[in-house]
Structure formats: structure tokens, C-alpha cells
Nucleic acid binder design. Sequence first.
DNA 1: ACATCCTGTTACCGCGGGTAACACCATGGT
DNA 2: ACCATGGTGTTACCCGCGGTAACAGGATGT
Lengths: 212, 212
Amino acid sequence: MAETDLAGRVDDRREQLLAAADRVVRREGSAAAMNVIAAEAGITKPILYRHFGDKGGLYRALAERHINDLLLRLRAALTTRGGLRARTRATVDAYLASIEEEPQVYRFLVERAAVEEPGVRGQVEGFVRRFGEELAAGIRSEPELAAGPAAVDPGRAVVWAHAIAGMVQAAGDWWLDHPEVPRQSVVDELTALLWDGFSGTATDASTRQGLR
Amino acid sequence: MAETDLAGRVDDRREQLLAAADRVVRREGSAAAMNVIAAEAGITKPILYRHFGDKGGLYRALAERHINDLLLRLRAALTTRGGLRARTRATVDAYLASIEEEPQVYRFLVERAAVEEPGVRGQVEGFVRRFGEELAAGIRSEPELAAGPAAVDPGRAVVWAHAIAGMVQAAGDWWLDHPEVPRQSVVDELTALLWDGFSGTATDASTRQGLR
DNA sequence: ACATCCTGTTACCGCGGGTAACACCATGGT
DNA sequence: ACCATGGTGTTACCCGCGGTAACAGGATGT
């Protein structure tokens, strides 16, 4: 009981500090200094360091929270009722909607993922990587892809998953700089590409002169 | 004549400094300090700053050179003789081969692209973005996609281009951490995804129960 | 009363980006 | 011969930021 109280208080504190960091990051971008974050929380640096160890720790905690929020939305979209194509479309749309709602947070995630710890290999687990792992799980448990005699190869699943994660991320990143393009159309193009690939367009368009 | 001499000498100097920076970056990663780069070139900091303005300038110049090398290889692959599928495959392979040969350089490009200037919007022109622009030009001038009655929409072309750029980049990034996977198979998977998309697998695998 | 543990502070270190000020040496015009 | 110009090069410094040491209450339990 006392333990839960204590843990509760500590977690409240962490949450409160993270909230301050979040405000600063939204306001000033991912280059926010620990100084400023501490001031925003009404305290000074050492307290931040006591709670999060170092700047990486704070940023990791903050990123973790936002990534989890995002993954929740993506999971929800991945498991909606409907055919695979509809779920694909819903997932892409959920991703783009998320980054549209909070572009600052998205920027933070992407920029942090690249820098984090340039030396540590295999431990980085950046943002897109997490997204990819999630998709891999989704693909593996996808009835329309994982079942049947020509089931998708496990190796294929993981490569595809990370490829798709990067594809959606890059397209979304580009889209944030081109707000004149409606989200719907980006979603449509991406879904079309994921579903039919080039062959859907190429074979429609030109004569089948020795393709494949 | 005197001008060309002068320009030639200045460019030599720049090249020489960039070469030093390149060595350091390959040796120590993208977190290399200006101090160290200057020492590697046998000089001190202010000279670097005179030539490149600030650290961003140096890194941008260095990235520019490597990006150009990479784009040359990609352009070559994009324009080889053969069907669209073969060229798609060649381009993906060229990209993966490049990052396999010099992963340090690749890391530098990716990490720099994300950090560069977090404040400047629309000017960033990161590495993947450049790759995407290149692909967009390739797609637009692609006879099997751009010609015919169902020619690929210009908007579709640009979205696809950046999507594909991100897809290949992310898959390559993942692959660098999984060297046990042969390059061939990554290329195969990516080409398959780009060419047929899910429908190639899904419709083969499971019954067509209400897809599309 | 005292030990403990949390919260909080001020003041500092070290590193790295960036700059000021100055010194040297070639060129070349008058 | 003289000095302006413009490049190369230096030392020495500033400052911002990540990170830490040391110290000062103020609760709480025994």
C-alpha cells in the first residue's frame, strides 16, 4: 500500500516533468535545452537528471509515450473489420492523421530517432523501426497474407514491414511540407501503390511488351 | 587564366579539407568535432570556418558530394536497358549495394539529414528527399508509366517517388542491422512489393472473399 | 532526538561551436 | 622601393549546454 503510494507519487512527478518537457518540445522543437525544460517545470536541472539520468533518458521517455499513443491508433486501424485493402487504407490514414494533428511531436520523434545514440548498434530502436516491428507482427497475423498455401514468407514479412513503415513515414514527411495536397489523395496513392504496385499501372497503361 | 588558377587552388583546398573531414567522419562517425577535423587536415578551426561558414556548411558540402555519387549510381541503374521491372530491381540493388559498401557514409547522410537545420522548413532537402525527387523525375519520364491513356497521374508520381525512396531507405537501414540476410533476398522482396503489392500475394494466397 | 529520503538549490566543470585579433607571406600596382 | 590586398595560419577567448558536486531544508518514521 505504502509502495503503491510511493510509486504513484513518483510516477506523478515523472508525468508532470514529462508534461513540461512535452510543452517545451512542442513550442521550441527537439533542440530544447534541459535548462529550459527545467524552467518550464518550475525547477532546475539536477532534478531532471535525478529522474531521467541524462538527456537521452528524458527524450526516450517522452518519445516512448508518444510512440505508444501512435501505435495504439495504428493497431486499432490494423484490426478494424473489413478486407485487407480497407485495413491497409485505414492504417495509412491513421498514420497521416496522427502526424497532421501534431507535426511538432512527429518531428521530435523522427529527429530524436536519428540522433539518439549514434554509437550503439542494435539498441537504437528508432521510431520507424518500432513502427516496422509493429507492422511485421500485423502482417504475420494477417489472415489474408499469412494463411493459405502461398502464405507470405516470414522473411518477406519483416522486410515488407520495415519497407512499408519507411514508405509511409517518408511520404508523410513530404506531405507535411506540401499541405496543399489533401490527405485523402496521399492515402489513395499509397494504398494503390501498396496494393497493386507498378504492375497495376504499367500493365494498364502500356502494352505488355516483355514486362515481367 | 589567373582566375581559373585561383579558383583551381581554392577548390583544391576545399577538396583537401573535405577529404580530411571525410576521413574523420568515416573513422569516428557523424559526431566528429570541428577540432578533430581541423587536426586531421593539419590546421586549426578558424580555417575550416573561413571555408565553410559553420559546421552545417561543412557537413552539407560533404553530404552533397556523397549524395551526388549515390545519385549517379542510381541514375545509371534507372536507365539501364530492360523492362521497368528489371530497372526497378537494378535501382533497388544499386542503392543497397551503395550503403553496404560504405555504411559509415550512409549513416552520416541519414543522421545529418535529420538534424541539419531543425528550424528551416522547406529548405532542409534531406537525403531521402533528394532521393525522392530523383525518383519522381525518373517516374515522370518512365515510358511504361508515363505514356498511354492510363498514364500515371503527376500527383501520384511525386507521392510514389517519395514513398519509394523512404521504403528503400528504411528497408536498407533495417538490413544493415541484419547482415545475415543476403542482399539478393532483400532486393527480391522489395521488388516484389513494388511490382505486385499485396494483391500479388493476397489473391494468390487466400480466397477472394470480398477483397477490393 | 536523530537517521533517512525526497525536493530543491547554487556553483561549478568540460566540451564543442564559433569568433576576434593578430602574424606571416605572396602578389602586384604605382 | 613601398605598401595595399588577400590569402594562410595562429592563439586565445566567449558562450551555451550537458552533466555533476555539494550543500540546505523539510517531511517521515523510530
